[in-house]
């Protein structure tokens, strides 16, 4: 019998590499992006050899973002995208994160909130890549101006979601951070957060 203390492998090596590949890319894009955007963050450019250096790091990291997004999309795809009928119920109850709810719809490997995060990261990541490349490669004539605006809008959205993600991935939901480090969490943690997934026996498979 598997005890609740037993560890279950939630993320494979591949999934963890993808997570950190994306995380580091986005982090680097954020600090280089903000380092360019806000005069008070210009000091960051020292790390990258000045304003042109920081721009180049940002631009080429942006290229690296594209496969990261595709891989993340792959990870999500494997676990199924949205299951609208139940996911909406989940969202109505905010997954039980904000107020006490007795009966939160059961989640699979990723709860609907996480799926939304996937969606945001992938769609806005694509938006960032598309607008970024336009800004970089196209001659800067007037309609291109909107690319800068959309790019900035993307930052607002991604950054906001990312902060929620980090909060919930660390102190907000203790134990969850292990998934992206070791790949393993306690079985009971999993039973709580990913009951459907556990029922499918996917965890067992993963556990081996």
């Amino acid at each position: 019998m598997i005890t609740s203390e037993e560890k279950v492998r939630v993320f494979t090596v591949y999934e963890r590499v993808v997570h950190w590949y994306l995380a580091l890319t986005v982090f680097l894009l954020l600090i280089t992006g903000l380092g360019m955007m806000y005069h008070s963050f210009h000091f960051v450019s020292i790390l990258f050899g000045g304003m042109t250096g920081i721009k180049n790091v940002h631009n080429y990291t942006g290229i690296a973002l594209i496969p990261a997004i595709l891989m993340v999309a792959g990870v999500w795809w494997r676990e199924g995208l949205f299951d609208f009928s139940t996911d909406i119920e989940w969202f109505k109850k905010a997954g039980g994160y904000l107020w006490s709810v007795d009966d939160v719809p059961k989640s699979g490997k990723f709860n609907p909130g996480q799926k939304l995060y996937f969606f945001v990261i992938i769609s806005f990541g694509a938006l960032m890549a598309a607008t970024g490349i336009s800004m970089w490669w196209l001659p800067g004539r007037s309609p291109i101006g909107w690319m800068y605006t959309l790019h900035a809008f993307g930052v607002v959205v991604i950054l906001s979601f990312m902060l929620i993600h980090i909060y919930l991935g660390t102190i907000g939901v203790p134990g969850s951070k292990d998934i992206v480090f070791s790949g393993y969490v306690q079985r009971r943690w999993c039973l709580h957060h990913c009951p459907k997934w556990m029922q499918r026996g996917a965890a067992g498979k993963a556990g081996k």
Partner: peptide, 9 residues
């Protein structure tokens, strides 16, 4: 740094 934002603006 040649971000070209001024060009479009």
């Amino acid at each position: 740094n040649g971000c070209k934002e001024c060009v479009s603006a």
